[in-house]
Design a binder for these strands. Structure first.
Length: 331
DNA sequence: TTTCTCACA
DNA sequence: TGTGAGAA
């Protein structure tokens, strides 16, 4: 099969086929005499996968890696790449959504004021720029975390910050008290200790974590659990599908601005009456005290967000830092 | 027809 | 991440 034929068959240009070869994604045999490429069935299949992955928005360099895993029939690794791809597309989708919202605001301004005041535009632009930067900062950070693998620190439960771990989980479960068949989401699920307890009570749980190693363990411990790669600022769901969101000992990894963004994200994936329960190390004072160089959530800031967004709050302090915060929409 | 290279967006 | 033109 010559290049034109395979290109026609797959609805791409011959030029693109050569381009993929140049990038090392493909290596068709070449005829001795004239250097014409000859494509066999296997090349067709490979090219088809390239096109599909491209369709999923995957960059060529990543497709190359993914193809290698397919060659090795390494399903697990391939799945990881696909999930990683989904998180990337998810954050792009969120960005687009945000741009649309900004545009809508401008349209609304134009309608009410019959003009676009420069100041308002400027504010809108600034706000959306800020949002983007918050998301980006997170990405940088969690790529770093993945290399460093904070595994051990987390596993050492019942010491230091994790001393009242069990008690905290128990209280979350008690407050959320899921009814049979409710959809729940655990963000920063780790190895799924919290999600596991909620499953026992009949909830149908999904777990999001940024570490695939965690998710792997999580899946092993709780086969009924749905696990997805993702993070607080770009939850891998289209929205409006959970009855409750929980998170334990993860929220404090975000900056204050990111925490508020994360709350928006939680609300996005929740059903209208969806509730939120957080267990974490938090400050009650207004001024953040730098302890262990972590920027712990500041209670009043979270309170304000919940109040502004129509939630009723219940909270309990377990030790000098550890708090449980439970928020239910009013109405 | 095909290949390769250079330039371009 | 591709595409178009031109020479071989």
């Amino acid at each position: 099969m010559q290049i034109k034929e395979i290109a026609n068959k797959l609805n791409i240009s011959p030029r693109a086929v050569r381009f993929y070869e140049e990038k090392g994604l493909l290596s068709p045999a070449k005829q001795e005499n004239n250097q014409y490429r000859t494509f066999v069935e296997k090349d067709v299949w490979r090219l088809q996968t390239i096109i599909s992955l491209r369709e999923a928005g995957m960059p060529l360099t990543d497709i190359k890696k993914a193809l290698d895993e397919i060659d090795e029939t390494n399903h697990e690794q391939l799945q990881y790449y696909l999930e990683l791809q989904r998180t990337v597309m998810m954050s792009q989708w969120l960005e687009i959504k945000q741009v649309i919202e900004t545009t809508d605001h401008m349209i609304a301004l134009l309608k009410t004021k019959n003009t676009l005041p420069l100041e308002d535009i400027y504010q809108l632009a600034e706000a959306s720029k800020l949002l983007r930067e918050q998301r980006k900062n997170w990405k940088d950070k969690w790529n770093f975390d993945q290399q460093a693998s904070t595994h051990d620190e987390r596993v050492s439960t019942n010491t230091g910050n994790y001393s009242d771990y069990e008690q905290a989980l128990a209280l979350i479960v008690k407050w959320v008290s899921p009814i049979q068949g409710e959809q729940g989401l655990d963000i920063g699920a780790g190895t799924g200790n919290l999600a596991g307890r909620l499953i026992e009570l009949g909830a149908s749980m999904s777990a999001v974590d940024q570490s695939r190693e965690m998710l792997r363990q999580c899946q092993r411990k709780h086969p009924d659990l749905e696990t997805k790669l993702g993070n607080f600022l770009a939850l891998p769901y289209l929205g409006g599908q959970f009855d409750f969101v929980v998170s334990s000992f993860a929220f404090h990894h975000l900056t204050t601005e990111q925490q508020l963004l994360a709350l928006e994200e939680m609300r996005r994936v929740l059903k209208p009456r969806g509730r939120i329960c957080l267990a974490d190390l938090m400050h009650t004072a207004h001024d953040p005290i730098q302890e262990n160089s972590e920027e712990y959530p500041i209670m009043p800031v979270l309170h304000r967000w919940f109040e502004e967004n129509g939630y009723m709050i219940k909270q309990h302090q377990i030790n000098h830092l550890l708090h449980i915060l439970y928020a239910v929409p009013i109405r």
